[in-house]
Computed example of a mutant assay.
Amino acid sequence: MEFPQHSAYRVPTKRPFLLKELRARLPSVDDRIRAIPGYGDPTEYDAIADSLYRVFTTARNLAPSRHTTNCSIHPNGPVDPQSPPGWGQCLFCNSNRRIGDPRARSAVLNTPRQYEIPPPPYSHEVLLERMRHINDVAFELHYRSPDEDFALAADLVHGAFIIARELSRPRSSSRCPRHPGAPLDPAAPGGPRCLFCATAETRKGAVPPPQIRDRNRGLPPYRKKR
């Protein structure tokens, strides 16, 4: 009697539970984003950013672990922004080396891999497009998916979290990039606009005000005392 040959591959223990959790959390976050009318309010994106970070935590646990420093002692420690050539990326170890500790040697294995941070601009439409991509990738995931697919899902969710976090920041009522917090001019052409920008455009076509120039009168003449 011949026995079937089994594959040596074994599904990781927590992968089925984490994949189920990822697919359970995504629809509720997606519905909340689609329910935001128009530009939305920062307070609405604040709650969405919290939900997306929880989704990112699940996607990060599904993906292969990433060490920010590649240090065997502090793998997830802070990165040294001014690391000298030939040194590692660990801020703790580099600080010890700077003070003369000969035992401090942060390992230099490879370039630290950070999670994706999408470039600006950040808008509601960009967040919706990112969620569509996340849903497509999550739908294709299964227990035997390669690690690259889970890493891609973690990057996409982290990018969505960054976009929602930026949209949750306080905005000015005028939405003017040059004068944040400026008052609105309700009588400006084209609708309510930034008062400073509308005033500057009005002054361009007006007659410039007269300029007063002060004459250099010089020093008073020297008078000899009697």
Rank of each mutant, 00 (worst) to 15 (best):
S123Y: 07
S123A: 07
H124F: 08
E125A: 04
V126Y: 00
L127Y: 00
L127E: 03
L128F: 01
L128C: 08
L128Q: 10
E129H: 11
R130I: 04
R130L: 01
M131K: 03
M131D: 02
M131P: 01
R132P: 11
R132W: 11
H133I: 14
H133V: 11
I134P: 02
I134T: 06
I134L: 03
I134W: 01
D136S: 14
D136F: 14
D136A: 14
V137M: 11
A138I: 08
A138P: 00
A138Q: 02
F139C: 12
E140H: 15
E140G: 14
E140T: 13
L141K: 06
L141R: 04
H142E: 09
Y143Q: 13
Y143C: 13
S145N: 13
S145I: 10
S145E: 11
S145Y: 12
P146F: 09
P146H: 15
E148R: 09
E148A: 14
D149N: 15
F150R: 09
F150M: 04
A151I: 11
L152H: 10
L152F: 13
L152E: 12
A154C: 10
A154T: 07
D155M: 02
D155L: 03
D155S: 06
D155K: 08
L156G: 03
V157Y: 09
H158K: 05
G159R: 01
G159C: 02
A160R: 01
A160F: 00
A160K: 00
A160V: 12
A160Y: 00
F161W: 07
I162H: 02
I162K: 01
I163V: 05
I163E: 00
I163K: 01
A164V: 03
A164K: 00
R165N: 12
E166T: 03
E166P: 02
E166Q: 07
L167D: 05
L167T: 03
L167R: 03
S168P: 07
S168A: 10
R169P: 04
P170C: 06
R171C: 06
R171L: 08
S172R: 04
S172G: 15
S172I: 10
S172Y: 07
S173G: 14
S173R: 14
S174R: 00
R175F: 12
R175S: 11
C176S: 06
P177F: 02
R178T: 13
H179D: 05
G181L: 15
G181I: 11
G181F: 06
P183W: 09
